[in-house]
Computed example of a mutant assay.
Amino acid sequence: MKMYRIYINDTVLIIADVLPGGLGNYQQVDENDFNFGQFYKVAKGGPASINVLLTKDPKQTFKKMRRSFLVIKAAGGVVRNDENQFLFIFRKGKWDLPKGKLDEGEKTKKAAVREVEEECGITVSKLGDMLCKTWHVYEEKGQVVFKKTTWFNMMATRQALIPQLEEGITEARWLASGDFDYIKENTYPLIRDVISLLEV
């Protein structure tokens, strides 16, 4: 099965060639009438929903969809410490994971470590494998942006956290996997899906 997940605040748009299992309540989108610009306008302020667009060629459909918009590359980390706790940040009223845009000419892995260290005031001791890639759509200066974030597993010793206030991060916290339900109550669908990939 080929599939893309695009996140717009609390809305998820899934582009796939086969209906994924375990979705719960979802709405199917008609491929023939679909216009991403119109969909985005409704989705950005709408209630939480899962929308599925079935198509023979998800990759081509997705490439065509994002062609008209600016694409920004970002990288972030899921950091585990030596006490098997995970690093979360609190930004703009929701729990999140540290991430940020690549600087010009910067490699994805280097950007991921840099962003985690800058946003949380820690030193990463080990960069692990790539965990996943996500697509998040939002507006910046009136322009619709597709942000592609590459997420990596990371390790760090348990150390004091210093949230990067100038980036709107008001808290950084080490949390055990047993606290994931607490995080999921006040986070984005994108972060919930990243968390669900962790082997705890």
Rank of each mutant, 00 (worst) to 15 (best):
K2D: 15
Y7F: 08
I8G: 01
I8F: 00
N9M: 03
A16L: 03
A16F: 02
D17S: 05
V18H: 13
P20I: 00
G22P: 06
Y26C: 04
D30F: 09
D30V: 09
N32K: 15
K41P: 08
K41R: 15
K44V: 13
P47I: 06
S49C: 12
L53E: 08
T55Q: 13
T55G: 08
K59V: 08
K63R: 14
K64F: 02
R66A: 02
R67C: 03
S68R: 11
F69V: 10
V71K: 13
I72Q: 15
A75S: 07
V78S: 01
V79N: 04
L87D: 08
F88E: 07
G93W: 01
W95E: 02
P98D: 07
P98F: 01
K99Y: 07
K99M: 12
G100P: 10
G100I: 04
K101I: 14
D103P: 05
D103H: 15
E104F: 12
T108Y: 00
K109N: 13
K110C: 03
A112R: 09
V113P: 11
R114W: 06
E115M: 06
V116I: 05
E118G: 06
E119Q: 06
T123W: 11
V124Y: 01
G128N: 01
K133Y: 10
T134A: 01
V137C: 04
F146R: 07
K148N: 11
M155S: 14
R158W: 01
P163K: 05
L165V: 07
E171H: 03
A172E: 05
W174N: 06
A176L: 05
G178H: 10
N186P: 06
T187N: 06
P189C: 00
I191E: 12
I195K: 01
I195W: 02
S196H: 04
L197K: 08
L198H: 01
